[in-house]
Design a protein around this nucleic acid. Sequence first.
DNA 1: GCATTGACGAAGG
DNA 2: CCCTTCGCCAATG
Length: 127
Amino acid sequence: MKKAAKLKITEEARPAHKPYSFFEDVYDVVRQIPKGRVTSFGAIANYLGTRLSARMVGWAMNGAHHATPPVPAHRVLNRNGMLSGKAHFATPTRMEELLMKEKIKVENDTVIHFEKIFWDPAKELEI
DNA sequence: GCATTGACGAAGG
DNA sequence: CCCTTCGCCAATG
């Protein structure tokens, strides 16, 4: 489901009690990341058609905490496979722990074999 | 309403 | 190869 999220943002605005559709799109993609796999902000942004707005994906994750159903934000890393958002979790080690549970090895705040378990929505999901 | 700030990323020096 | 700058755009002061 590739849609003009960018346009919907400005159009639908946000009802406050409801998140931006762009955010929902991000959440939707993140929720579809297979267990044991990870992706990057850029990949998601690219899938949504806003390749140059990877920051927005990160910003979207800000609301992922109170999003329902829950969003596995720990599977989203920066392009280097680093746990850039671990500071935003309940505890600084929460993100790493969640990844470890999925057999994903983390070392020095970076996912090992990142390219190997990388999951590109634009490629794996729909095109 | 302008300025600053990001869970980013690519390009330039 | 490391560091800086710039683009992107919503949110916040």
